[in-house]
Design a protein around this nucleic acid. Structure first.
Lengths: 157, 157
DNA sequence: TTAATTTAGGATAAAGGAGTCTTCAATACT
DNA sequence: AGTATTGAAGACTCCTTTATCCTAAATTAA
């Protein structure tokens, strides 16, 4: 099991790229998909969820695409995750026991709660602008590809 | 997304129950399944994985069932998770980027690494005997059911 | 107005997760 | 020997995830 679904990590990668390259303009999903080496059709469906949640604005036709509805600085990672995967990860019992809590805890409740809060805080603290700056300043990665490809990507970012 | 698959949480609940009630004897999977309100067939498949991994011993026929191959104290939660879900959760990049690491990190690498290690340590530290003791001493839950059902379960544990 | 561009939305399909059911093999007990 | 019990193993179903592809609708620009 992964922490996040594929759709979710695609959504995160796409929004970070948008924060890096968007510059307030609508950016075509096809361009985002190409730069991240993802299926444009699939990414379109994922970003539609972010549009429906109000994180993105979309515009059809030439000069169309998607852009943030608010400054990237104000969009926290947890909003992207919540729109795609939901908040179950940050809210539910590790043993999947409905109703687990301080009143009727599962045997892992106390320990897992601590990590759950810490994890939630991480996702509530990181925003898309900050992550974009990380990528820009340190040349960090957004793609799974060969080393050469990473270099090429960093050069024309 | 949940932290662990359903199979995995069923496996964890079952092994904790086994640690509570097993007493060194083979315990029929059907009994475990009934007490946890799970499908016996499905639980059989899950526990087979633990048998294949060497965590459990199984025995067919009357007086058969499953029991631990080692003292429950020595079986860490991460072994159960590893046998069912694999260790991806404790090893992989949060953004699903293959090869993410200190050399070629993703924008979340530094932060997620810390949590990943902490989470791994939790699962490496908790053992089945300890979790069983938690349940026994504090009357904690292993089932998702009505309040009445919880009481009934605790009374004849 | 026409053509090109771009998101929206639906149909379809492959793969895996979750769960059920049936049969087979091993074992204990009479 | 025969029977009941129990895990092992496979077939099968249902649902969700992860896609792919096609068409429709909106929009821009010539």
């Amino acid at each position: 099991m992964a922490l996040l679904s594929k759709s979710c990590v695609y959504g995160i990668r796409a929004t970070i790229l948008l924060a890096i390259k968007g510059k307030g303009e609508f950016m075509p999903i096809k361009d985002i998909a190409e730069q991240l080496n993802l299926s444009a059709h699939f990414l379109t469906k994922i970003l539609q969820q972010l549009t429906e949640e109000g994180l993105l604005l979309s515009h059809r036709g030439p000069k169309g695409g998607v852009k943030f509805s608010r400054p990237a600085r104000e969009i926290k990672l947890i909003e992207v995750v919540g729109a795609i995967d939901g908040l179950e990860l940050f809210e539910e019992c590790a043993l999947g026991l409905h109703g687990c809590g301080t009143a009727t805890p599962c045997p892992l409740h106390e320990k897992w709660s601590v990590h759950k809060v810490a994890l939630r805080t991480l996702f509530e603290t990181e925003d898309l602008e900050k992550l974009a700056e990380n990528v820009k300043s340190a040349g960090l990665r957004l793609r799974t590809l060969s080393q050469l490809d990473i270099i090429e990507f960093n050069n024309n970012k």
